[in-house]
């Protein structure tokens, strides 16, 4: 059964990975052999300088979902490369390193550091960061997205994946801009801006006032966005948004995603990615498929 996926020059042994920020401490709760079953590991987003994150409450549970405003708590790129990266490399799984920055120059600087560190399979650009001097996020502007992707592609030794925000009018326009600027793949989707209110205290249930909604609640919207985008771009898509089991993941693959990522549900069942992979294989066997490409984008249009 052929289930390996290529994104640019990177090869992933299978199509199942994890969404950035949902799979810390892998080495502690997965056995070494179990981690190796993942198609790729995507650690939490790293920024140029260390960030301490947002004050509590950082998360709240919502119907079939959660809102989070963690604030990209991370040790900064240098410490990440010195301390965390060696451990991640030792896991023996292809690594997709997620980065975010406040300017194109900072993105480039981080990519240069990662070039030097070596051992990555790909870089994922978390573009849900402020677009300088504008109210929007980079991922909300085709022009800004294109600008960052182009600058990063100029220097990166690794394939570049642009992670798109769903908080836009037409996500295909942003996807096309990323592709045209040279992105090797797309990750979609990031969280939906949301809020929840404690009616007793008349306060937001999130310390940061608003946050990003994820989990099964968003899945149908994410599937629709992946389906629309897959019809218009040629580069592979890593589909994500509320995947809890193989059936959920199959929706994304059939819609046109080449890979799938389990996100929020890792917090409920840290084994979910492995269950998803087994379920995809079982589906392929049941439908006498020998190559995952028979499945990808197979939706009847």
């Amino acid at each position: 059964m052929k289930i390996a996926i290529n994104i640019g020059t990177a090869v992933f042994p299978n199509p199942v990975t994890v969404a950035s920020g949902t799979f810390g401490h892998a080495e502690e709760f997965y056995g070494q052999e179990e981690v190796k079953k993942l198609g790729a590991l995507v650690p939490k987003t790293v920024t140029l300088n260390a960030q301490q994150g947002n004050p509590p409450k950082r998360i709240c549970e919502t119907p079939a979902g959660m809102i989070n405003a963690i604030g990209i708590e991370n040790p900064g790129i240098d410490r990440f490369i010195d301390v965390k990266l060696p451990r991640l490399k030792a896991a023996g799984v292809p690594l997709i390193i997620s980065i975010s920055a406040h300017s194109e120059d900072d993105f480039v600087l981080m990519v240069e550091k990662l070039n030097e560190a070596g051992g990555l399979s790909a870089i994922e650009l978390n573009l849900s960061c402020p677009n300088l001097q504008k109210k929007e996020l980079v991922a909300q502007s085709a022009e800004a997205t294109s600008g960052v992707v182009r600058r990063v592609k100029n220097v990166s030794h690794y394939p570049v994946i642009a992670k798109l925000s769903p908080n836009v009018t037409d996500i295909t326009a942003i996807a096309l801009a990323a592709e045209e600027a040279g992105a090797d793949g797309l990750s979609m989707v990031n969280t939906f801006m949301a809020m929840a209110i404690d009616i007793r205290k008349r306060r937001s249930r999130i310390g940061n006032f608003t946050g990003g909604l994820s989990g099964p609640a968003i899945r149908p919207i994410a599937v629709r966005m992946v389906c629309e985008t897959a019809a218009r771009v040629k580069i592979p898509i890593i589909g994500m948004g509320g995947i809890t089991n193989a059936d959920d993941a199959l929706e994304f693959l059939i819609a046109g995603a080449s890979m799938v990522a389990v996100g929020t549900y890792n917090f409920v069942d840290p084994r979910a990615p492995l269950t998803v992979l087994e379920g995809i294989k079982a589906y392929m066997r049941a439908h006498r498929m020998t190559d995952i490409r028979e499945l990808i984008g197979s939706i009847e249009r």
């Binding site: 810390g24 709760f29 994150g53 509590p56 950082r58 959660m66 840290p270």
Partner: peptide, 17 residues
């Protein structure tokens, strides 16, 4: 005590100062 998601130190949702 804090609202918790993963319980494993992965999500950083239950951080306190």
């Amino acid at each position: 005590e804090e609202v918790m998601a993963c319980g494993l130190g992965a999500c950083l949702g239950c951080s306190i100062p």
